[in-house]
Amino acid sequence: MADLTEAEANAGGRWWNADDVADVTEMLAARGSRLWQLMAPADLAAWVFEAPAPSPLDPAPDAVDGDWASGLDETGRQAWALAGWVARTVVPDATGTAGRYWILSHLDDAAPATLRLTVGMLEILGLYETGEEIWLRSHAAPILSAMDAGAVDLEEWQRRGIDVADDSTRTLAEDKVLLTCPDLATARWLLRQPPVIAGVRLLSCWVAAGPYSFESRYRPEVVARAWQASQLLDGEDPDALPGGGNGFDRPYTGVTTGDLPAQRSFDADAYRAGVDEHDRLCRTLIAHLSRSRLVAGSGLAGVHVDLAWRDVDGRQFIAEVKSVIDGNEVEQLRLGLGQVLEYRHRLAARGVAATAVLLVSRCTDPVWPAICAGSGVLLLTGEEEPTWRAKLMTAAVG
């Protein structure tokens, strides 16, 4: 996968480009298979990088006989829904290739019952009907490319309990990873991430073109049941990123001095004063926005921005906040500008375009507004709150 330049990312670029589609087309074309009689390699390569949307419910591979949810509790219903949604989303031409290139198995003679999606020679998805664990195999290249571009935050994955490990199965052993989620909600979140969908689709295209020996185990009623169940997830917010609807991930709670460690290797009083000033600036900006009926919070799309919000027209803003106390003005301005540029880059790699703001307590050097503007960043100071509204409106228009 090709790396993004900073210009591409800042312009809302992606973690993949046209060269990646061409590379995948060439790779798939080298795989001799009857599958390419159904879909051309170039079409499949383009589909690999499309948004994580499932194929249409109609037509279904098979008709459902009876009540698909009979005997299932809510968790079981959601497990079946996820299995069907994944099949519809990551299997090439899922309707036309069911039973020929992929199967969905329901192993109900084990405890707990298990659902397994097998594409070609490889199990792509496995989950317990109890929703306790979900495992997913993916081609590593799209995920690694997205990591390099900052579109995948491994710390966020770890916080959610997502495990990433080398996969032990022989097929494409060096090119794939095994992703494990602790519950259904986490798996749904992970499967809304475009690099993950691209990785699973790429793996599915590759292995579907290989030997397929499981047709005798195909149970059309199992596929039909999951297919119908999957519509439970079709109404979910298609935005793969946390905070997509609010303009931020979570409400701002701030940091109090009581949260700080008692012993530090530097001036603890100065540190606490800086933290208190940072909190004051954040709350001042939140209050300022609220007077225009705007709500700000912390974090955006897994990126740890200090504050994020959307204006009345839905345009996204992010702010890095820096406290300026005696003797650290230049250091804080340099640090804050670097951080907000990094956050904007990481968000752009996730497909989120944002206006960047740097808020500091004060700025005595008149050159700094121009320095920030040269990087497309709006500089605000705590001493000039009455000017914020006009400056933010101008920045949004620009």
Rank of each mutant, 00 (worst) to 15 (best):
V86H: 01
A349M: 12
R272H: 08
W309D: 00
L115Y: 15
Q316S: 08
G120Y: 07
L57E: 02
L379I: 04
G336I: 00
A270Q: 10
D108I: 01
V312K: 13
T97G: 07
R310W: 01
A373G: 03
E132D: 14
W368Y: 03
T355H: 05
R170M: 14
G302Y: 02
A42Y: 04
I318Y: 02
R217W: 12
A270M: 08
A319T: 06
D269W: 08
G374F: 05
S323H: 03
L378T: 00
P195F: 14
R346D: 09
G12E: 06
V223K: 04
L335D: 08
L82C: 06
L241Q: 11
S204Y: 06
M147D: 15
V360C: 02
G247Y: 02
N17M: 07
L190G: 07
S290R: 15
G338F: 02
Q332A: 09
M121I: 11
P59R: 10
T169A: 15
R217T: 14
G336H: 04
D148Y: 12
E277D: 10
E123M: 09
N328S: 06
E129C: 03
N17C: 14
D20R: 02
G314V: 08
P112H: 02
S33W: 05
A83E: 02
R280L: 10
D279A: 09
R14S: 11
G314N: 03
L203G: 04
S105P: 01
L378C: 06
L191K: 06
R344F: 01
G243E: 05
T95V: 12
G120D: 10
G126N: 11
M121Y: 07
Q263P: 00
I286C: 09
A7N: 04
V295F: 15
D311Q: 07
C372M: 04
I103G: 06
R201V: 06
R315V: 02
S230Y: 09
P142W: 03
R217S: 15
R310Y: 05
A373D: 03
V91G: 11
A110F: 06
A110L: 10
C363L: 12
E329Q: 12
G32N: 13
T256D: 14
E50F: 08
H278F: 00
S145G: 11
A198H: 00
R389E: 10
V321W: 07
L172Q: 14
G297L: 09
V312S: 08
T118H: 07
G314D: 01
G299R: 05
A173F: 13
V48W: 05
A373K: 07
R14K: 12
A185S: 12
A40L: 09
R192P: 00
G235A: 14
F248V: 03
Q37V: 06
L179H: 03
T256E: 15
G150A: 11
K391V: 01
L179P: 09
R334A: 12
D267N: 11
T114G: 08
A395C: 00
L44N: 00
P366R: 09
R34V: 02
D58A: 13
